[in-house]
């Protein structure tokens, strides 16, 4: 399994963090990534309304993962509405654990202002080492 990229989307649909970890997916201009993140936020809301047979009493649940040929994306929604999106190669194993680890690293920065872009070098390096162990 390879992790191609990671996005963090705040609860309003704005992109607060994005990093690419391989060259498999071509680098995109930041504006395009911002638009795509916003689109994904909207898609997440719509997909939860399309459930054809929701179990009675269950809360609405939006997009969890999507697939293309050879790669896919995994969306993890935290209770506060922040979304972590992993773009990865197909053949998932341990993606949920990985997203939990990322969430943990994200939560452990006391100086971060919620919903604002993440400009912490330490967050970045810790993610780099985490992804390096996964991609190795």
């Amino acid at each position: 399994m390879t992790v191609h990229a990671l996005w963090v989307i705040n609860k309003a649909g704005g992109l607060v963090f994005s990093r690419s970890y391989t060259d498999t997916l071509p680098p995109l201009p930041l504006n395009t990534v911002l638009i795509l993140a916003g689109t994904l936020h909207g898609i997440h809301a719509i997909t939860s309304r399309l459930a054809p047979a929701p179990p009675p009493g269950a809360p609405q649940a939006g997009l969890e993962s999507f697939e293309a040929e050879g790669w896919g994306g995994k969306v993890f929604l935290t209770p506060t509405g922040t979304k972590f999106v992993l773009l990865h190669s197909i053949g998932h194993a341990g993606l949920d654990d990985l997203l939990k680890r990322v969430y943990e690293i994200f939560m452990k920065n006391p100086f971060h202002t919620p919903e604002m872009p993440i400009n912490s070098a330490q967050f970045d390096t810790r993610l780099q080492t985490l992804m390096a162990t996964v991609n190795a």
Binding site: T47, A51, A53, A58, A61, L63, E64, S65, E67, A68
Partner: peptide, 15 residues
């Protein structure tokens, strides 16, 4: 993906 012929195949929610 940067490719015009990339096919989106499926998506999944918990339901």
């Amino acid at each position: 993906s940067g490719k015009d012929d990339e096919q989106f195949t499926s998506y999944k929610t918990s339901q």
